[in-house]
Amino acid sequence: MGITVSLENMDKIYERPKTLKDQVMHYCPGCGHGVAHRLVMEIVAELGIQEKTIGIAPVGCSVFAYYYMDIDMQEAAHGRACAVATGVKRMMPDHYVFTYQGDGDLAAIGTNETIHACNRGENITIVFVNNAVYGMTGGQMAPTTLIGQITTTCPSGREQVANGYPIRMSELVAQLPGTTYVERVAVNTPARVRKAKKALTKAFKSQELKKGTSFIEIVSNCPSNWKMTPVESNKWLDENMLPYYPLGLYKDEISGE
């Protein structure tokens, strides 16, 4: 039985953002998608841009993002979020347009759309959640699955000879002249969540400069398909994901603007 503490003389210093709908998200316990959703919605609330923000949901675990984010959204075909976002942004250049995509969506089936949107410098924010596995379909190998990592379609661990290398998208898109701001963050500790929020805020605000694409990669967990507890999965992320996907700033052409 937990304890009850009186809230008398206390200030509310943190609460769920109003831009997140009053819905229980379908994500598995401990999944980083929930944190990423919340951060994006906190930013929309704090920047006061709910009326001017259009989100593009992917195919994958976050396919239902529009049930949770209280903004106008479109659900794109698998991999096509960046093309859909391009269509929206070109018609409404003064709106904030973002895609929210997983690794299969952004870095396998949608690599072409991703790279060309970044290369054109579409003035959108791409939120890329990389958890190294296909979640929605039940744990198959992703383009970002690590060498040696076991999934249902590489049951003895990903082998380079058969499956190639895990793809590092932040490094890749940072090479393109169309991107202005690229950062890789994580959401598995309180400090990293704060940092991720700063990065996402900067990415959204960069759209006001109309200078190009902002790309935020969020290295995240998938307790269910990694077959770990949420706490174990966050440790595994530290020990295995981050050495291959180093956190940090990959490109910043907007600071000081």
């Binding site: 809230l7 003389n9 206390m10 200030d11 509310k12 210093i13 943190y14 609460e15 769920r16 953002p17 997140l20 229980v24 998200m25 994500y27 316990p29 401990g30 999944c31 980083g32 998608h33 929930g34 944190v35 919340r38 959401v187 598995n188 500790t189 309180p190 969540v193 704060r194």
Partner: peptide
């Protein structure tokens, strides 16, 4: 606020004296 920051379900409200 650490708890609320890492909470994937945004179910935590934090108060301070």
């Amino acid at each position: 606020v650490s708890c609320a920051l890492v909470c994937p379900d945004a179910v935590i409200t934090v108060y301070r004296m």
